[in-house]
């Protein structure tokens, strides 16, 4: 099975994922592939199961059925931390930060863990100068350098959304799954935020969830549409905007559940 996937060249693939919460089916027969360097948008109405799909991919939830492949290897049995170590990293729709760590400490934490220093208790953090400077450089690249000594909970909300991404970048991801990175950010600021995302290295394959269709059409090379726990359709922005089924969903002419 694994070799079959490798041939297609997908960095991340899902095969037949099912997941239910009791009688509520939140993922049903999910199949998709992300090719290397892609910029995918995952769209769909609230409650469609988008966040759940990210939880399944990253190991925060176990699928009832199906397989997940990362770089051609099945990772379905691995826990979240092990998947991160292999380069599959996510951010959160609702900030999941470290409120009483400074921004610099938070990112340095992620860098140290990636470099395997997380268990070292006999040396001081500033002795890992390269790690600290890398953390600072990541923050600088997201325009957070000036506030990097402030505690996370003191940062403006938009800065906290950027810190979400900074934490993910500190793990050196191969695949980055961004769960509504601009959630709660004013419309005029979300453009800048996606500017940062589109500026990420092409070595990183990105899938992002976003509701603002202008943003989606601007930054995604391909779009996955999810409705009621299923992938309704996948295609280029042009195909998606022309697809009658997608229009139905977004104009609310069709009930789903």
């Amino acid at each position: 099975m694994a070799t079959q996937i490798a041939v297609t060249g997908a960095v991340l693939a899902a095969r037949g994922l099912d997941k239910s919460f009791g009688s509520l089916v939140v993922a049903s027969g999910i199949d998709f592939e992300l090719p290397q360097g892609a910029r995918y948008a995952l769209i769909g109405p609230n409650g469609a199961g988008k966040t759940t799909l990210i939880n399944l991919m990253t190991g925060m939830l176990r699928p009832d059925r199906g397989q997940i492949f990362l770089g051609g290897e099945a990772v379905t049995a691995l826990g979240p931390a092990a998947r991160v170590k292999r380069g599959l990293v996510r951010t959160f729709q609702i900030n999941a930060l470290f409120p009483h760590l400074s921004a610099l400490e938070a990112v340095a934490l992620a860098v140290c863990e990636r470099q395997g220093h997380g268990g070292i208790w006999w040396r001081r953090l500033p002795d890992y100068r390269a790690a600290v400077e890398e953390a600072h450089a990541i923050l600088a690249s997201l325009h957070l350098a000036d506030d990097c000594y402030r505690l996370t909970h003191e940062l403006a909300y938009g800065q906290q959304r950027l810190l979400e991404i900074a934490l993910a970048l500190a793990t050196k991801p191969k695949v980055l799954l961004l769960d509504e990175p601009a959630a709660g950010v004013p419309r005029d600021e979300s453009g800048a935020l996606f500017g940062v995302i589109s500026g990420l290295s092409r070595d990183i394959t990105v899938l992002f969830i976003e509701h603002d269709m202008d943003v989606v059409f601007r930054f995604a090379s391909r779009i996955l549409v999810m409705v009621g726990g299923r992938i309704l359709v996948e295609g280029s922005p042009d195909q998606i905007s022309a697809d009658p089924r997608v229009r139905e969903v977004y104009l609310g002419q069709k009930r789903h559940g």
């Binding site: 990253t58 925060m60 826990g79 979240p80 931390a81 991160v84 170590k85 990293v89 996510r90 959160f92 999941a96 930060l97 470290f98 409120p99 009483h100 760590l101 400490e105 938070a106 340095a108 934490l109 992620a110 140290c112 863990e113 990636r114 997380g118 268990g119 953090l125 934490l167 993910a168 500190a170 793990t171």
Partner: peptide, 18 residues
């Protein structure tokens, strides 16, 4: 620092590979 990370947000820790 990792310990403080666990205290501050145990859910995020595995998501940064800790």
């Amino acid at each position: 620092l990792s310990l403080r990370g666990i205290r501050e947000n145990p859910v995020r820790m595995p998501a940064i590979g800790a």
